[in-house]
């Protein structure tokens, strides 16, 4: 008997298949394993990410929804809140109180979050980076100080992302 995590995720998958959400497409990496999701995010319009397609994985544990999943871009992406190895650092994927006080607890992980709500947050993160708690310091600095270079680099990667498909 599988736990509540699988069941919840299964339900979400069925929902997403029926009523997909603008901006991303989600499915299982491995049929039958509801803990590993494969995500494709369409670069949001009117951002330098536009035109790119970004692959990511979303890894849940059996403790979902008590614990948040981990999200990692597998396509190279340049963003203040994404580590260079692709791990996404946004407040809603973090548990509990932020010891640095940057993130309010109501912006942090809560069991109500679903694949959909996580990805909507990530997409909004792409449009508006949060440079207060950067994961990629170089990207963050560039975003703050040399937006033009930042945009150019992002666009180059967005184009590159299509070649990798």
């Amino acid at each position: 008997m599988s736990g509540a995590a699988t069941l919840l995720l299964k339900k979400q998958l069925a929902e997403l298949n029926k009523h997909p959400v603008e901006g991303f497409s989600a499915g299982l990496s491995d049929d039958g394993n509801f803990f590993e999701w494969q995500i494709m995010i369409v670069g949001p319009p009117e951002t330098p990410y536009e035109g790119g397609i970004f692959n990511a994985t979303l890894s849940f544990t059996a403790e979902y929804p008590v614990k948040p999943p981990k999200m990692k871009f597998t396509t190279e992406i340049w963003h203040p809140n994404v580590y260079k190895d692709g791990v996404v650092c946004i407040s809603i994927l973090h548990e509990g109180e932020d010891i640095y006080g940057y993130e309010k607890s109501n912006e942090r992980w809560s069991p109500v979050h679903t694949v959909e709500s996580i990805l909507v947050s990530v997409i909004s993160m792409l449009s508006s980076p949060n440079d207060e708690s950067p994961a990629n310091i170089d990207a963050s600095n560039e975003w703050r100080k040399d937006r033009e270079a930042f945009n150019k680099r992002v666009k180059r990667l967005a184009r590159k992302s299509l070649d990798c498909l």
Binding site: P20, W37, V42
Partner: peptide
């Protein structure tokens, strides 16, 4: 793109489990 994947040309839609209204 469907279900988080880029579809490959040789697959059929049914194989991919695409259904009415998707």
């Amino acid at each position: 793109i469907y279900s988080g994947r880029i579809l490959k040309d040789h697959q059929t839609l049914a194989e991919l489990n695409i259904q009415e209204g998707h």
